[in-house]
Every structure is written in structure tokens, then in C-alpha cells.
Design a protein around this nucleic acid. Structure first.
Length: 833
RNA sequence: GGGCGAGUGGCGGAAUGGUAUACGCGCACGACUUAAAAUCGUGUGCCGAAAGGCUUGAGGGUUCGAGUCCCUCCUCGCCCACCA
């Protein structure tokens, strides 16, 4: 037990009862939505890093509150989804039961950190009242044409017999583990299944342009831009030759390129193994050799794409295409270096000007023809020449600049400008148990007749809004099937449903949606968490959104933040909100490490906050975590470091004993100056999330106050206010003890809380210095530091300098008079000899 | 391979182009104590007896003056990765 537990418990209860942190969501005059990414209740409990983020943003929120804002700081749990389910699987508990246990543990931990949470609005994504609206969003996406089904390969672990999310397949970076299941280490395979997708690609352009108007760290914006991967290029058609006229056969290949200027040097076409397989499935003839290559290439590609280092393989497809620029007959190859998921799955290969094509052509002895040259002549190509240059070997385009040739050659070859994106549609289905059932129904009877809610998807109906939520049934064996179906498929009571159209027996969709969907919209729901009839009350949303300040981990730079922006833009298009960027201001927090290494179970260096909060108290831990480093950078968690802030708080408490008897006493001029400087600095530092330097400034101020024989009341009150966002419990207690306002004995009221006091203001006049240290430099080196009066002229400064013994010595030894003097008012004088 | 970020004491870190190492930890010495802890005080980048010199990953540049701006390189961290 820490020395503070008693007062912490007292104030926690009083604050809760008085609703100090519950703004009126319907009427607040100066709403300020202070949001942190909600946690998913992990196995180990609240991570010390999350605690730092939560208390960190709470410091900001308390500061904003004292500045007169109605601060709303909600909290909830992102407890639905694969992570929680895997934990349940691991310990052999049922996710439904485990959720309740984790929930209790997390809320217990979140209560002890001293945050001003609006507890009444808390939510959990697995709550029926919550996921009802997750499903509602799915229904709207379907009706709007933004949800669709398509065949897609999923990750499948043959040993766990389960479908895995991409995040669960070890990434390519760790070479020796690439493409392995994170749980059992088996090689991941791909299975083709019909999956639901959200058409996020429709929003690619807006997701890109929206970045320009939001205040986010540049690195996060760059990450999103790269993820979206807009590429301006051209599409070209390569006709195929020698193909018998048959309906079911392709007669040309479409490709995307950013380098049409190299078209005359395109000496072969390469297509992805996946595309080749689709053609063969559609009726193409292919030799056994080719089929064998395709299946071995696909097998190698299972799991994540292998690293760029891997050697390229390929096989001649046995057909030829026509280069549209020079009508040359060029071979069509199948190769594993062609990505199926980017562009059209087919490329024109220009070995002379693309390193990958070059490598491939060398290996298979294909024609390499130079068409761009740095100097207008052929030269010996040892590697691909990828820079711009002068056109050669390109018929009538010879001699012109390659940049100019891009559009000319495209026109000549009958191509078009095309913008291509790296971004792919969002795969939303999960063949899992622990998530919101996708609210769709398939009727085979309607499907045969081509009927459905949407013409492009015969037989598919969304669940009627009045029938939402589609409740996740409790099933005993929730383990993933490995059949490509969700465990829900086994529950016939669940999956058998009447068709909303023809009333015959139909099938319910048994997949659940991706966890990331749950977290795209939680900040809307916080505003109206108890509303059973609507997603949210429009007036509240109008009053509070978009979010004023959002803080979270940069690991969500791409997925969560991009998906949330996407859903918000969809809401905007559905006209249920009037803004289309949810987080105009976002800041990423840093990572704290322990003993120089990232915290992990295998290293055994995970810090459990429970013991620390118990031993030191919330105020000390909040201060320690804030003092470690600026919030947006990391820090090393060291037990020894805690004592510094612990002592600091003890001294703050002791300082109260020194309070002067009357409130009339003033401070000396110097102390007052420091006080006002501190008010300024602490405020500015909090605004910039530089809590470490704010605390350092308060320590300096405390050191000054401690030196005084007695301390007047007023400055002590100001000091407590500056400290209040960091150490909410102790400052509230001292505020009350010294009767700045009310006391518990006289019936403590909300209005008496230090946390609703106004933030101190500094007087710019009182900050002005009358004296300063004049730095005298000779040739840029400091030779004297003199006390001077603020505002002295260059002449006066020079006089002071030349009268100084030390300076005299240098001037005489260097035997010269200053050639030049540089004078920075109230700062320094530099004599150049 | 590409993108982003970072390299400052024994440690976390601080420095609008103007006294580098604030604040804190740790350490040393001293006071208090029978003693220890706690507390308080003093000191604490490196070399040097001192005067003084050197020091922000390495090297160059711009500047009267560079931790800060520019170029080259090295190391570490994170993200992406055959994106045509």
C-alpha cells in the first residue's frame, strides 16, 4: 500500500459521485473531445505503455478542462476479435466468459490510474448494443454497393486447422520465419474462398487528398500515402497472336506501366501465376510443364510474398503478344515476380530499363533492347538503365527526351492515362467465432432467379434493420474449423433462416467481421453509448465531433486510422454526419522500453503496472511516466527513476507546512518572476505534450520556494494548479486541506474541485528580466560572462567588455583591435579579431 | 532494396543558430544518528597541479558563432517491401 491509497480512494469516490468528469453531452458550451485509442483487453492486462498513453492524454485533458473546456474523455474496450479469441483458445476458456473476466480486470486497472474518464459512457465492442450498430454499418455498406463478395485466397494454417488474419502470419522481414503461423510455426497455405470485401479503393483519392487538411505527424501521413500508393501511369493493350477465335479465350493482355517511353524495348510480357491459373481454369490449353510450374510457384508464394531477394523463376506460356509500338511478336512468360494483386497481374517487360526484367531476361536469355540512353548512343548494358535520357531504337521517336516520349508513345500505341493504387479492398470476413456475425442472408431459390437486394449479387439480402442485432449465439466448440467455414456454420439454429423476400428457408452468412471494423466507429458511439434506437444522436455528434485530440500508437498509422477515415467518409456520403475527417489532430505516442529492450514475454521484462501503482500511488506513477521523455518519444522504464518524482511530491506536501499565516504576504520580485515564467512554460509544454520539461520547471520552482523562509498562500495555490493535471489526487487533497476552497467536512462539492479551477495566467510584464548575463566572445569563444542591464546598447556592451581584465588580456595577446563586432541585444557580444 | 525517425555524461533526457550537458536518477563527500534508512548540504562531462584545452556517432561545408542548417558516411530503431 502506498502512502497515498487512502486519499486516492477517497477522491476517486467523491469525483465519481459528483460527476466531475461527466460533461453534459447535450448542452456543453465548450466541448472538447479528448480521445485515446481504446485498448483490447490482452492477456497480460494493461501494458505499462498503454498506461503512459492514457495518463499522458489525461494530463492534456485535465489541462484543457482547467482552461475552461468541457472535456469528454471516454474509455472502453476493443474486446471482440481474433486477439481475444486466441487468448481464450490458449488458456482453454470460452471467449464469452473470458471477456467478462478481462473486462473486470481492465476496468479495475483503468480505475487506478487517476484518469478523468467519463465512466458512464464506457462501451465494449462485444456488447450486443454495440455490435448491433457494427452490423447496421455493414448493412448500409451493402446497400450502398460498398460491400461485395469475391473469391480470394485466405491464410490457412494446416496444423491449427484455422484461417488466419494477415497479421498472424509472420512477416517477410524475419526471413527464416516468413510465412509461418505465429502460434505453431507451420507453413501457411492459401485457400481460395468467397469473401466479403469493403470497397475502400473507391475512396482512395479522397483518403489521399484528405491528408492535406489534417494535423497529423508527417510520418503517419507518409505511411498512409505509401499504403494508398497512388501511381500515375498508362494502360496499354498487347494483342495476342495465334489464338483460335473462341469466345472463352482472351485475345489481348492489359498492362499498367509508368514507363511507356520504354515501350519499344518491351521484349516480352510476363503474367502472374495466379492470372495464368485463372486463364487455364477458364479453358486455356496448357502443357503439363506449365501447370506444374504454376502450382509450384503458387506453393512458394503461399503465406506472405517472399522477400525481394528470392530468385525469379518463370516458364514460357507458349503464346505470343504483339508489342503495340512496333508490332513485334514477343513471348508471353509466366513468372513469380509478377504480383497478381497490383495493376492487372501482367506486365510489359523492358529488360534494358528495369532491374527486375533485366535479371529475368539474363537468366532466361531473352532479348534486351536499349531504347533510352543517357547520351543518345547504344552502350554496353551491365545493368538496367532506369533514369531518363534520349530515345533510341524507337523509330520516329528517336532523339527526343524520354519524359516527353511517355505521352507521345502512349498515344501512338493506343494506350490511355491511368491512375493505379496499391491500396486493395478491405477483406472483411473472418471464418471465426468471436466477432459480430455478418448480417447477410443468402437464398438459393432467389439466387437461381437472379433476385436479390442488389442486382449484382443475386440471392443476397441484408438482414432487416428491425431484426438487428444478429446475436452471436453461444456455442460450446468455438474453435476455428479449418474447413474455410466459421464455427457458426455448425449451429444450424443460427444458420437456418427465412429468406426476407420469398420466405423460403435460406442460409445466414456465418462469417464474422474483422475486428478493425469494430474500432472504426467507436468514437461515435461513446457520445451515445446507451442509445438503443439509433447509432447516435445527431445533435450530440454535431456538438462533439470531430475529435479534438486523438492519441494512439503509430503501429495503427495505417490500418485503424485509415479504416476510420474511410468509414467516416462513408457516413458523410450517407449524409448522417457533416464532416469527413474524424481526427483533425492526431499525435502518436512513443514506446517505452525496459533495460534497453522492447518489453516482451520472451525477454521477461514486461512491467505490470499493478504493483507499481500499489507501491507508489497513481500520482507518483503518472509523474514518473510523464517525466521520462516527451510523450511522442520513448523512454526507458527504470525502477530507480521513480524515487525522484516520489521525493518531489513529498516535498510539495511539506511545502504546505511553510505557508505564511496571512494571505497578504507577497513574493520577492525574483520568486515572482520565476513563478510567472513557470506558469508560461508549464502551459506551453503541456500543449506540446512535453510533460518532461513541464515537470522539470515545477521542480525548479519548488526548489526556489523551499528556499523561502515562508511561502504566501497564493503562489502555493498556483503551484498546486500547475501540478493538478499530473498529480490529481494529491493536489486535490492539498487544495482541500489548505482550504483554498471548501472541504470534505463542510460537504465537498464539485465546484470545489481543483480540477474545475481555472488555469493560472501569467503576467508578461512580470516575466521581463531587468538584468542578464552578457556573454563576451572573442572569435566565437566565450571569454567572459558579465552582469548587464537589460536593453544596453552595443556601445555600452563594448565598453564593458574592453574594461574586463580577462578580455583585455586576450585583446592584447592577440594584438589587434576588433575587425568586426557582432551584438545580439540582451545576449552576447562577439569580437572578431 | 525503399520510406521515416534517432545517435548528447554512468542512465532518462534539456537546449528560438548564441554560456552544451537544464531537471531528475545514480555516484562521492559532509551533516544528523550508537548505527542504518530517510532527510538536508556540497560536488559530479573528459584531460590538466593550474592556466587552459577538449567534448553532442565520423568526416567535410556554410556562419562572427553549429548539438541545431547543408553534403558524405557509419550505427541503431520502426514501417513497407519484386508495387511495374
Amino acid at each position: 500500500m502506498s502512502a497515498y491509497s487512502k486519499i486516492e480512494n477517497k477522491w476517486r469516490k467523491l469525483w465519481l459521485k459528483a460527476r466531475v468528469y461527466e460533461p453534459d453531452l447535450r448542452k456543453a458550451k465548450k466541448p472538447f473531445y479528448n480521445l485515446m485509442m481504446f485498448p483490447y483487453p490482452s492477456a497480460e492486462g494493461l501494458h505499462i505503455g498503454s498506461v503512459r498513453t492514457f495518463t499522458g492524454i489525461d494530463i492534456y485533458g485535465r489541462f484543457k478542462r482547467m482552461q475552461g473546456n468541457n472535456v469528454f474523455e471516454p474509455i472502453g474496450l476493443d474486446g471482440f476479435g481474433i486477439n481475444s479469441e486466441n487468448y481464450a483458445l490458449k488458456i482453454g476458456a470460452h471467449p464469452v466468459k473470458q471477456a467478462k473476466i478481462s473486462e473486470k480486470n481492465f476496468y479495475r486497472q483503468l480505475e487506478m490510474i487517476g484518469n478523468g474518464f467519463a465512466w458512464r459512457e464506457r462501451l465494449e465492442t462485444y456488447d450486443t448494443d454495440y455490435y448491433k450498430w457494427t452490423q447496421w454499418i455493414f448493412v448500409q455498406m451493402f446497400k450502398d454497393g460498398l460491400a461485395y463478395r469475391k473469391q480470394s485466397p485466405v491464410n490457412w494454417c494446416p496444423s491449427c486447422k484455422t484461417v488466419l488474419a494477415d497479421e498472424q502470419v509472420l512477416p517477410a522481414g524475419k526471413q527464416e520465419f516468413a510465412g509461418e503461423c505465429e502460434r505453431c510455426g507451420s507453413k501457411i497455405e492459401k485457400k481460395d474462398l468467397e469473401q466479403w470485401f469493403f470497397k475502400i479503393t473507391d475512396y482512395a483519392e479522397r483518403l489521399l487528398s484528405g491528408l492535406d487538411k489534417i494535423d497529423w505527424p508527417e510520418s503517419v501521413k507518409v505511411a498512409q500515402r505509401n499504403w494508398i500508393g497512388r501511381s500515375e501511369g498508362y494502360s496499354l493493350k498487347f494483342p495476342l497472336v495465334g489464338i483460335p477465335e473462341q469466345e472463352d479465350r482472351k485475345h489481348s493482355i492489359d498492362i499498367f506501366t509508368t514507363r511507356p517511353d520504354t515501350l519499344f524495348g518491351a521484349t516480352f510480357v510476363a503474367i502472374s501465376p495466379e492470372l495464368a491459373k485463372r486463364w487455364i481454369n477458364a479453358g486455356w490449353q496448357a502443357s503439363d510443364e506449365i501447370k506444374k510450374y504454376i502450382s509450384s510457384a503458387l506453393a512458394r508464394r503461399e503465406g506472405r510474398e517472399i522477400s525481394g531477394e528470392a530468385e525469379k523463376t518463370g516458364v514460357f506460356f507458349g503464346i505470343h503478344a504483339i508489342n503495340p509500338a512496333n508490332q513485334e511478336k514477343i513471348p508471353v512468360w509466366i513468372s513469380d515476380y509478377v504480383l497478381d494483386t497490383y495493376g492487372t497481374g501482367a506486365i510489359m517487360a523492358v529488360p534494358a530499363h528495369d532491374s527486375r526484367d533485366f535479371e529475368f531476361a539474363k537468366k532466361f536469355n531473352l532479348v534486351i533492347r536499349e531504347v533510352i540512353s543517357p547520351n543518345g548512343r547504344d552502350h554496353d548494358l551491365r545493368s538496367a538503365y532506369m533514369d531518363p535520357g534520349v530515345m533510341i531504337n524507337s523509330a520516329k521517336f528517336n532523339g527526343i527526351n524520354s519524359e516527353a516520349a511517355k505521352i507521345e508513345i502512349t498515344k501512338f500505341a493506343g494506350g490511355d492515362r491511368k491512375i493505379n493504387y496499391r491500396l486493395r479492398d478491405w477483406l472483411i470476413s473472418r471464418q471465426r467465432y468471436w466477432g459480430p456475425p455478418i448480417p447477410m442472408i443468402f437464398c438459393s431459390a432467389c439466387g437461381k432467379l437472379g433476385k436479390g437486394e442488389r442486382k449484382d449479387m443475386p440471392g443476397w439480402y441484408s438482414v432487416l434493420e428491425k431484426d438487428l442485432p444478429v446475436r452471436l449465439p453461444f456455442i460450446k466448440d468455438y474453435r476455428p474449423q479449418g474447413t474455410g467455414e466459421s464455427p457458426l456454420a455448425k449451429d444450424k439454429k443460427f444458420s437456418k433462416v427465412k429468406c426476407p423476400k420469398c420466405k423460403n428457408w435460406a442460409c445466414r452468412e456465418t462469417d464474422v467481421s474483422d475486428t478493425f471494423l469494430d474500432s472504426t466507429w467507436y468514437f461515435f458511439r461513446y457520445l451515445d453509448a446507451k442509445n438503443k434506437r439509433k447509432l447516435f444522436d445527431w445533435l450530440r455528434v454535431k456538438r462533439w465531433l470531430p475529435v479534438n485530440m486523438y492519441i494512439g500508437g503509430s503501429e495503427h498509422s495505417v490500418l485503424h486510422l485509415l479504416y476510420s477515415r474511410f468509414i467516416t467518409k462513408a457516413f458523410f456520403d450517407w449524409k448522417i454526419i457533416n464532416f469527413d475527417e474524424p481526427f483533425p489532430k492526431f499525435r502518436a505516442h512513443g514506446l517505452i522500453i525496459k533495460g534497453g529492450a522492447k518489453m516482451s514475454k520472451s525477454k521477461g521484462n514486461i512491467v505490470n503496472p499493478d504493483g507499481y501503482f500499489k507501491d507508489f500511488g497513481a500520482d507518483v506513477m503518472r509523474l514518473y511516466l510523464a517525466f521520462m521523455a516527451p510523450l511522442d518519444s520513448g523512454g526507458n522504464f527504470r525502477d530507480e527513476g521513480i524515487s525522484g518524482v516520489d521525493r518531489f511530491l513529498v516535498r510539495v506536501k511539506k511545502l504546505g507546512a511553510k505557508l505564511a499565516k496571512t494571505s497578504k504576504d507577497g513574493l520577492s520580485k525574483n520568486s515572482e518572476k520565476l513563478l510567472h515564467k513557470s506558469i508560461k512554460k508549464v502551459g506551453e509544454d503541456i500543449e506540446n505534450l512535453h510533460y518532461n520539461t513541464a515537470i522539470s520547471q515545477m521542480m525548479i520552482l519548488l526548489n526556489e520556494f523551499e528556499k523561502l523562509p515562508s511561502l504566501p498562500w497564493h503562489p502555493y495555490g498556483i503551484f498546486l494548479k500547475l501540478l493538478a493535471p499530473f498529480a490529481p489526487y494529491l493536489t486535490e487533497e492539498l487544495w482541500q486541506n489548505f482550504s483554498f476552497k471548501g472541504s470534505v467536512a463542510s460537504g465537498w462539492k464539485k465546484q470545489n474541485s481543483i480540477h474545475l479551477e481555472s488555469w493560472p495566467k501569467f503576467d508578461p510584464k512580470k516575466i521581463k528580466d531587468e538584468n542578464f548575463k552578457l556573454i563576451i566572445q572573442i572569435n566565437g569563444r566565450v571569454r567572459a560572462v558579465l552582469d548587464a542591464t537589460t536593453g544596453i546598447s552595443e556601445k555600452e556592451a563594448l565598453e564593458m567588455a574592453t574594461n574586463d581584465e580577462n578580455v583585455k588580456k586576450y585583446l592584447s595577446s592577440l594584438a589587434g583591435s576588433p575587425k568586426k563586432t557582432i551584438f545580439v541585444p540582451d545576449k552576447l557580444l562577439n569580437l572578431v579579431i
